[in-house]
């Protein structure tokens, strides 16, 4: 089985390198930008995918998305720090820490209650941000120019390419590590916890602790995604980073992608981004109709998400650790 795992790692590596090469040499800037935004969100969706495999859906992960984004933005505004080797780890850690603390509460809940409790927490952060002038209120504020090892650039094209390569690198690393994780003993406690917590307890492992760990992991990844999104957009505000609609988008992309593979969120997220751009151009008043209709279609006819289509086309099974 180690062989299969290596094959997936290889596949992920080839895929991300191919996207990176295409991006640098072939793709137009507007598409690069879309991939950058899509992959930033995909980092968060990978976290939600781990939760979903555990049978849990959160309607409030915008909390961690926003925490990551605002951590990056505030480090720049208050301390002038734009170094991504500082801001992104800080965003990840801040979200992980809050996830760790709230995890003690949410791990007692399942299904609707888990989803709604997360929503409540995220709306509290949203309310605080909107009403706090010092944090930019509804308008938010700009993000410091990012630098890598102290090197920055004013050339928009160079900056875009650099960020694009960065998100590809982090996306690859995340996908490989999470894939390894899902293949570990702890990783098998995703679907196992979803299937039967009593049995997990009676095999000698705490289902609540397993859930807590996965929750922290999802919080960290969502924080990382939010941090990258803040840098990509160059701006943070409550509406586009913390509102419940952001949580809704994350969940939507998770369902769209399907739980089959850690690669799925990157593909699903890109489809979502392209869909949104074209939908706004072609049918300006029907965006919700498209999202809602897609959601219904997937739930009724395609429970494995787009990944199941891709893997069927490729003639192989989804990656099930």
């Amino acid at each position: 089985m180690a062989l299969t795992s290596d094959r997936t790692t290889l596949g992920l590596t080839v895929g991300f390198v191919a996207v990176a090469l295409l991006g640098v040499f072939v793709l137009p800037d507007w598409l690069l930008n879309q991939i950058l935004v899509a992959f930033s969100r995909a980092l968060a969706v990978v976290g939600l995918l781990v939760l979903w495999r555990t049978g849990l859906v959160s309607f409030g992960h915008a909390l961690y998305f926003g925490l990551g984004a605002y951590t990056v933005a505030l480090l720049g505004r208050n301390y002038g720090i734009g170094e991504v080797l500082v801001t992104l780890p800080a965003a990840t850690l801040a979200s992980a820490l809050v996830g760790f603390l709230l995890g003690f509460i949410v791990r007692r809940y399942r299904e609707i209650f888990f989803a709604m409790l997360n929503l409540a927490f995220s709306m509290v952060l949203f309310g605080i941000l909107v009403k706090t002038e010092a944090l930019g209120s509804t308008d938010g504020f700009n993000v410091e120019q990012p630098t890598l090892l102290g090197i920055g650039t004013d050339d928009a094209a160079v900056k875009l390419t650099a960020l694009f390569l960065g998100v590809c690198a982090i996306g690859w690393l995340t996908a490989v590590l999470v894939h390894r994780y899902l293949g570990s003993i702890l990783g098998s406690l995703t679907t196992a916890v979803r299937d039967n917590e009593i049995r997990v307890e009676y095999l000698g492992y705490s289902a609540a602790e397993a859930i807590h760990g996965k929750y922290v992991m999802s919080a960290a990844l969502t924080g990382l995604g939010g941090g990258f999104m803040a840098i990509s957009l160059g701006q943070v505000d409550p509406e586009s980073m913390v509102n419940w609609t952001v949580s809704g988008e994350l969940v939507f992309v998770t369902i769209l992608s399907g739980p089959g593979s850690v690669a799925a969120p990157f593909i699903g997220s890109l489809i979502f981004e392209l869909l949104r751009t074209y939908a706004f151009e072609l049918v300006p008043y029907a965006w919700q109709l498209i999202v809602g209709g897609t959601l219904l279609l997937i739930i009724f006819f395609l429970p494995g998400g787009v990944w199941s289509v891709l893997s069927r086309l490729a003639g192989r099974r989804g990656v099930e650790p």
């Binding site: 849990l56 859906v57 299904e111 609707i112 989803a115 809704g248 969940v251 369902i255 008043y285 029907a286 965006w287 919700q288 109709l289 999202v291 809602g292 209709g293 897609t294 959601l295 219904l296 739930i299 009724f300």
Partner: peptide
């Protein structure tokens, strides 16, 4: 349960936009 919530959420989004189509903006 959660899948049902998501399905009704999808339905909600669709119905909201149909309002715009019927009653205008």
């Amino acid at each position: 349960e959660v899948l049902i919530v998501l399905a009704t959420f999808g339905l909600f989004l669709v119905l909201e936009d149909v309002i715009l189509l019927v009653f205008g903006v």
